[in-house]
Design a protein around this nucleic acid. Sequence first.
DNA 1: CTGAAAGCGCTTACAG
DNA 2: CTGAAAGCGCTTACAG
Lengths: 345, 345
Amino acid sequence: MARSTGHSRPVIKDVARLAGVSAPTVSRYLNGTVKVSEEKRARIAKAIEELGYEPSVVARALSNREMDTVVVFAANPEAFSTSETNHGVEKAARACRFLMNIVSLDESDMDSVEARVRMGLSVRPAGAIVYRYDRAGIKALDYLPKDLPLVVVGGGFGDADRQIVNAEREAGRWMTMHLLDLGHETVFHVTRPKGPTDNTRTDGWRDALEERGAVIHEPIVVSRDLEEAAAAGRALGERDDVTAVFAGDDETAVAVIRGLREKERQVPDDVSVVGFDDRNFAAMWSPALTSYGQNYLEMGRRAFRMLYEQVKARRDGVEPPPARVDVVEGQPALRDSEIEYVPWR
Amino acid sequence: MARSTGHSRPVIKDVARLAGVSAPTVSRYLNGTVKVSEEKRARIAKAIEELGYEPSVVARALSNREMDTVVVFAANPEAFSTSETNHGVEKAARACRFLMNIVSLDESDMDSVEARVRMGLSVRPAGAIVYRYDRAGIKALDYLPKDLPLVVVGGGFGDADRQIVNAEREAGRWMTMHLLDLGHETVFHVTRPKGPTDNTRTDGWRDALEERGAVIHEPIVVSRDLEEAAAAGRALGERDDVTAVFAGDDETAVAVIRGLREKERQVPDDVSVVGFDDRNFAAMWSPALTSYGQNYLEMGRRAFRMLYEQVKARRDGVEPPPARVDVVEGQPALRDSEIEYVPWR
DNA sequence: CTGAAAGCGCTTACAG
DNA sequence: CTGAAAGCGCTTACAG
C-alpha cells in the first residue's frame, strides 16, 4: 500500500487497550446504546482524553450503513437564494454535528443529473435536501431512493411530503397589489425565467392583475446578465403606458431603473419600480428600492431540522413525524422607489 | 439493527457473482490497478450495467484510509468571496468526481475552531482547503495534520507552501493610485475590518498614499451593516477636504455614496467614490460604480486543482509537485463614479 | 491475469 | 453490564 502512511490516529482498539476494556464496550460508551459501569466509563473517558481519540465516521458509516451527513442537491449555485439556503442548512447541521455535502446540479446538462445524484448518494448520507426551484431539482427527485429521508425546499405547496416553501406567489401578488393600490392601471414584469412550478413571483403577479382585471402584458424574461435587464428597462422607457414595473429580483430592478433613466424616465416620478429579495444594497439605492425579503437562511435551517427529525426517528426505530409543509414567510420592505399614480399628472 | 432496512443497493459481490468472477477482480476492473482479461472486462461491465452498481465510497474509504472528498474550512460563509470560492472548488471537484464538504468556522467563537476542524477531518478527506482571510482560518491551520494535502486560499504571499492568493494589496494600491492620478490630493478609505495579513486592499491603499506622500487619514472601519457605511458617508460628507473615497467593497461603496448624498455631496462631481469586487450591480448603479473585480471563482477552481495534484501524487506514490504560490489576477472596471479633481473648481 | 485471505475501524446481535 | 465473533463493502498483498 503506497498511499497515506503517516496517519496514525488512535483507533477504538487503542482506547480499549488503554482503558482495559474491550472495543465494543468503548463503542457502547460512545453511543450510549447500552449501560456501561461507572468505573469503566471513567477509565474510558480518560483513555479517550489521553489519546485524543476521535471515532472514524467512515468506519461508523460502514457499520451503520449511513453517515452523519446531509447531502444538498442544488442547481444555480451562484444564485443568492442558493447560497443563503446552503448557509442555513450548514448552520443547523453543525448544531447536530452533521456534515453537509453540496452537490450542484447543472440545469444545462440534464443528462448529468442522475450521475450527480448517484455521486451524492455514494457517501450514504443520512438524508437529502433538494432545492426544487428548477427542472434539475425536480429531476433529481426521481433518482432518490424512496426510503431515504428527504426534505424538499421550494417548489409548489405539497410537491413533496416534507417541504419548506416560501410564500413566493403570495409575495409576488402582494407587491403587484401594492402597486395597483397606488393607482397604477397595470404593472409590467421583468424577470429571470420562472421556475416550473405554480408558486412563483410571476404567478403572484399574474394573480393580482387578474383579480383586478388589469391588462396583462406578458413578462419580459431576462437572464442573469444585467445588460439584458437594462435593455428591458430601455424598451419599457420608450412606451408611454408604463408607469409601474415589478422586477423579479433586486439586481434586475436596479438594471431596469438604469435602462429607464437612459430613456429619460425618472424613478419613481415617471415610473415606479419594485424589486424582490431585499438584498443588502436595496436600501442604499437611490431611490431606496422597495422590495420583498425572503428568509432563505431560515428556510435552510428549517429544512435541516425537518430532515433531522426523520433521521432521528428512523435511527430510534420509531415512527417518523407526519408529513408537513412548512411555509417560511417573507416581508415587504417599503421604501422610495414607487409612488402613487395620478393619471392627469 | 432497527435502522435503515430497505436499502438494497447491489454490492461488489453481486457484480462478481453475476459476472462469474471474484470480487477482487471486479475491484481491479474498477480501479484499473491491474490488468483484467478482455473477456472478463466485458462480463463485468455488463453486470455492473445490469445491476446499476455503484461502489460504496464509504467502504472504499475505509480500505483506502481516505475519501474522495475535499473539505473546505471557511469563516464568513455569508461573504460574497466565500460563496464564490466555494462554488469554484465544487466545480473543479466535480470534474474529478470528488465531493466537497463545507465546514464553516466561527470567527466569534474561536474556541470552537479545533472541534470544527476535527469534525471536518473525521470523514478522512483526501485533502483540505483553508480560506486564510481571517483569524479563524489561520487558527484552523494549526490543527491540520502535517501530512494531509493542503491548499491555502488567500492571506499573505507565502503564508503556506501551496497557496492561491489574489493580488489584493496590489489591487488596493492600483485603485488608490488611480484616484491620485486623477488629481485628488488624498483618498479616504471606508472598509470592513482588515484581515490579519499584509496582503489586503487596505494595505495597498496605504502603500499608494505613502508612495505619493499623501496625507493618510486612518480608515473608517464598518461592519456588514450598511447603515454604518452610510453613516461613514455622512460623516465624510460633512468635511470639506474629502474629494475621493476608496470603499473596501461595492456594498460599502453604494452605502457611502448614499451617505454623501444625504449631505448634498454629489458623486462624482463633488466626491469620487470607487468600490471593490465588481459585483453584478456595480455597473447598474448611478453613477455606474468603478470597481476592481477579483476572480474568486477561479481561485476556488485552482485551489482544488492544486490540491488534487498533491492527492494524486500521493496515491500514485510519486513525489508531490513542488510548493507553489499561484496569484490570481483581478482587473479594474473603470466606470463613472470617479472624476478628475480640479482644485479651483 | 486471478482467487482466497486478511484487514480497514467500527457496531450489533449472541451469549453469558 | 461485558466480551468474542461476525459483518459492513471494499482493497491489497500473497500466492499461484
